[in-house]
Nucleic acid binder design. Sequence first.
DNA 1: AAGACTCTAGTCAGTACTGTCTATTGTTTT
DNA 2: AAAACAATAGACAGTACTGACTAGAGTCTT
Lengths: 174, 174
Amino acid sequence: MGIAMHKELHLLGLLQSGPRTGYQLHRITKAHGELYTDLKKGNVYYLLDRMARSGELEVTAEAGAPGPRRERLVYTITESGRQRFHELLREILRAYDPPHTGVEVGMVFLPYLDVAEATQLLTERRRAVLDRRAALVGEMEPSDHEHVSLAQDHLLCLIDAELSWIERTIERLQ
Amino acid sequence: MGIAMHKELHLLGLLQSGPRTGYQLHRITKAHGELYTDLKKGNVYYLLDRMARSGELEVTAEAGAPGPRRERLVYTITESGRQRFHELLREILRAYDPPHTGVEVGMVFLPYLDVAEATQLLTERRRAVLDRRAALVGEMEPSDHEHVSLAQDHLLCLIDAELSWIERTIERLQ
DNA sequence: AAGACTCTAGTCAGTACTGTCTATTGTTTT
DNA sequence: AAAACAATAGACAGTACTGACTAGAGTCTT
């Protein structure tokens, strides 16, 4: 299985509620905000093409229905695609890979900076995390479906862990 | 800046304490265990070559000093490489990108499973996390240098956050 | 001492992904 | 109504990364 199964799962999941074009999928993804900030546009087209070749999706060319557009490609999920969706869903929920954020590497080389600068940098980091947190919380409407908020809750959880780690670490540096 | 600056930082950091070959760097990386589980061997060689081309490293061919081996390539950090190291170190400590673990995507599509199976899968996930935690803690010798344990502490922090999230979520599903 | 197996030290073909570019239509400004 | 700008829709060149393979040297087995 590829390293980024969740991207495939995401696209298959969206296609379960009806055929879509690549651009529509891209917009939906962007609209989700802080969730799904990986998965760029170019990658969407790449993955759709790959899934079509492997039989999980069917492609049909649609000549500009909603106005005189140029031809667009519409993707429809197949039975084999639905099976793959379920496989991926189970696999992703079951397995755990610790995230590699890169800050661990930074911490290892912390002695190359003096304490004042290190503290300064971690304080800036704290600010960045708080900004992300605010953005995420701003998106969390209580009107949303329960499961979407469960997903956002996971992100929030990791962000809060990061935050408290930063604060503990700044203190330890003194 | 590339998406995986921390890999470059890691290699530059190791080369600060003397010239090394690609294979040596690979072994050191593996020996670090749960830290650095990204960065595979092939990628090490790729990155070294790239950094050499951009002037951060110097390459010298060494004809089998410790025995009749075939020629090995030895990489030495340059002044420009040291500057880059400091830039990367600062940038990585300062900036924050929320990790994309993929489980959020899984949570969004949780309604496609019945509650019993979802609970089962999350329980298996809990087990996987506990295993990783044990592996990491097993590596954390108190004899280690302070800053290395700071790095491991970050990972541990995220793992514990994941763990408590899983437990909360399993309860919520009832 | 022949065979099997591991460790060293990479190479490379192919996959996954990004950023930038193009071209058309729709909307807003002046 | 012309100019300027945003949104739609995707292509594609190039970068980053992986996994499988090669091949010689050392070690262990029977």
